[in-house]
């Protein structure tokens, strides 16, 4: 079984492009966040921050750009976490029995689903970056064309690793559960702390200390560090906070995501091996 994962991938992508409403809404949703929440908050924050001096020649970044990076991460989080639902539907009413009774190995099932999840997140990330630039986010401002390409590649590498982690987690939970309602509940419960205990919408530096510790190891924060590094640059001011990333910081963030994804893969592998669907 060499290419089993490609079969799983093929089928999941068929479903992705077939549901036009779902496809369009999944692409529109992050754009709407940017357009409404982003512009609304940006107009307030940027007005408040207008008088705050920026020291040391670092560039000041508008709120729309700042939170735009967070929206890429948020979209990836939601898409990945909720991707498990298809597994649950397959298990209860669909093809999971056919797949499990076939010679395809269970690793291939997980990998195929992960690949299609990553593909979806890539499409979304690229669209948000494009739309962000369109409505005035300063992504890649002052970058050379080569630098922009490196930036996009960097963002996608981070998005991929993060997406894998949550896809595996989602798959592990989905294969272990019975009802879509229960799964939805758990996923919603998970997204709250992951999203809000991160630097997606605001700096984490003024958090109470324990929350700051949690937030700085949150995979979401690691992802957003990477996205900001590659779309804005290593040194900038936003919301009155000075952000500066060394290459070591970024490497650390990426490795953090690799470790996270590896642990989640182990979890999914364990759950799938035990999975009995009759």
């Amino acid at each position: 079984m060499q290419y089993g994962f490609l079969t799983i991938y093929w089928r999941d992508m068929i479903r992705f492009v077939r549901f036009k409403t779902l496809l369009i809404s999944s692409l529109l949703q992050p754009a709407l966040w940017l357009a409404f929440f982003g512009i609304a908050m940006a107009s307030n924050f940027d007005a408040m921050m207008a008088g705050v001096p920026v020291s040391g020649g670092a560039q000041a970044v508008g709120y729309l750009t700042f939170m735009g990076c967070g929206i890429i991460a948020m979209t990836t989080l939601f898409t990945s976490l909720f991707s498990g639902i298809v597994i649950l539907f397959d298990k209860n009413w669909g093809l999971m029995r056919e797949i499990l009774a076939s010679p395809v190995s269970r690793n291939h099932i997980i990998i195929g689903l992960a690949l299609s999840g990553v593909t979806k997140s890539f499409i979304q990330a690229v669209i948000i970056m494009g739309f962000g630039v369109l409505i005035g986010a300063a992504f890649f401002a002052g970058f050379t064309p080569l630098h922009i390409l490196v930036g996009i590649a960097g963002v996608l590498a981070f998005v991929a690793m993060f997406a894998l982690g949550f896809l595996f987690l989602s798959a592990a939970i989905a294969i272990s559960m019975e009802s879509p309602e229960g799964l939805q509940g758990i996923m919603t419960l998970l997204t709250m702390p992951i999203f809000f205990a991160s630097n997606a919408l605001y700096p984490i530096n003024n958090f109470p200390e324990f929350l700051q510790v949690i937030s700085s190891y949150n995979p979401m924060t690691l992802l957003i560090n990477g996205i900001r590094y590659y779309t804005i640059g290593p040194d900038f001011y936003a919301l009155g906070h000075h952000y500066s990333f060394t290459q070591a910081d970024i490497l650390f963030s990426f490795l953090g995501l690799v470790v996270f994804a590896a642990i989640m893969f182990a979890l999914a592998w364990w759950r799938f091996r035990r999975a009995v669907v009759t």
Binding site: M1, Q2, Y3, G4, L6, T7, W10, R11, I14, R15, R18, F19, D90, W93, G94, L95, M96, R97, E98, I99, S102, P103, V104
Partner: peptide, 22 residues
């Protein structure tokens, strides 16, 4: 029980199976 993907076509259903078995 029926184990078909409601949102795949008849042809795709068979094609998917053939691919699963390489």
């Amino acid at each position: 029980d029926i184990t078909l993907d409601r949102d795949m076509t008849v042809w795709e259903t068979l094609e998917f199976h053939g691919r699963l078995y390489e």
